[in-house]
Amino acid sequence: MQPTILLTGATGFVGGAILKRLNFESKFPVVVAVRDESRVCVPNVPKVCIETFDDMTKWEAHLAGCGVVIHSAARVHVMQDVEVDPLAAFRKVNVDGTLNLARQAAAAGVRRFIFISSIKVNGEGTDEGSMYSAEDVPAPVDPYGISKMEAEEGLRQLAKATTMEIVIIRPVLVYGPGVKANFLSMMRWLDRGIPLPFGAIHNSRSLVALGNLVDLILTCIDHPAAANQTFLVSDGEDLSTTVLLSKMAKALNKPARLVPVPAWVLRSGAALLGKKALSQRLCGSLRVDISKTRDLLGWAPPLSVDEALAITAMHFREHQ
């Protein structure tokens, strides 16, 4: 008999996709923990309502009979945080809330706790010729990355003190059907035929399709080699911003009107406009080494970048 899974964050971009896949396969019974039942994307799935997610949340009743927790709920990274103390706000949810759930899960006899972390634990970018690995010393820069690192550290300590196995997954930028933020903005620009000054960007960035990330998460539910490991995940195909936009335009069946403006010009202009972080994402490199993920789990991304972009573009077209 397969273990019952408690899934948090089921109304989010990643969590909703996990729920759809679990429901479709019907291999693992799942219960979702949410604050708003109306936003759950799969009807008739068992739900438990939680009013808050912090160090005071009571989980005992919801963990009875649960074998695995997939924890994708989080206070997510935001470009312009309005909190007076952003780090404290991130810690309340991403550290205190996570460790509170994990401690109660261990006490309830949960076998495995899968934590969706972030590549921001590694840092914000890689130099030419280098890649992040799961064994690198963490070097988070912003409050979100720091909070994810602290949650990871607390979970590893809990794994040493209990019998519950911890699996940590650090995704790079996730794209797919329903993607938001900068990725959606770029799709809209391309769809409208707006000329973009990104025709001469020679960086290299790892991305991960939503379907590939979800596939890895489900692999980690019962793979024996995943216990107490940290995994980086990507599509296994690194792209420059110029190549990504060209592929995205092709998926949308639109011409890519990319003007070859030098990256240093874009960086300088972004700095003057207070958009340095955005220029880093568009012009800087961030590559990850997923050889550990491949070798230890025998896993490979099921979707190519072109296939994943085609799926993303189709969803975009259907919801315009």
Rank of each mutant, 00 (worst) to 15 (best):
G15S: 11
L19W: 01
R21S: 13
R21N: 08
L22I: 02
N23E: 05
N23V: 07
F24T: 15
E25M: 13
S26M: 15
A33I: 14
V34M: 15
V34P: 11
E37L: 14
S38N: 09
V40P: 03
V40E: 01
C41L: 15
V42F: 07
V42P: 03
V42N: 01
V42K: 04
P43S: 05
V45R: 01
V45D: 02
P46V: 07
K47W: 09
K47T: 15
V48T: 13
V48I: 15
C49I: 13
I50F: 11
I50Q: 01
F53I: 14
F53G: 04
D54M: 13
D55P: 02
D55E: 15
M56T: 12
M56A: 15
M56H: 15
T57W: 03
K58R: 13
W59S: 07
E60S: 04
A61F: 10
A61K: 13
A61L: 12
A61C: 01
H62T: 07
H62C: 10
H62A: 13
L63K: 11
G65Y: 07
C66P: 02
C66Y: 11
G67A: 09
H71F: 09
H71K: 05
S72M: 06
A73Q: 03
A74E: 10
R75M: 07
V76F: 05
H77P: 03
H77T: 00
V78T: 09
V78E: 06
M79E: 04
M79T: 04
Q80F: 07
D81S: 07
V82K: 10
E83H: 14
V84R: 12
V84G: 05
F90D: 06
R91P: 08
R91L: 11
V93P: 00
V95K: 08
V95E: 02
D96S: 05
T98I: 10
L99M: 06
N100P: 05
Q104M: 09
A106F: 04
A107V: 11
A108P: 05
V110T: 04
V110D: 03
R111C: 10
R112C: 10
R112Y: 08
F113M: 09
I114R: 00
F115K: 00
F115P: 02
I116V: 11
I116D: 01
I116W: 02
S117F: 05
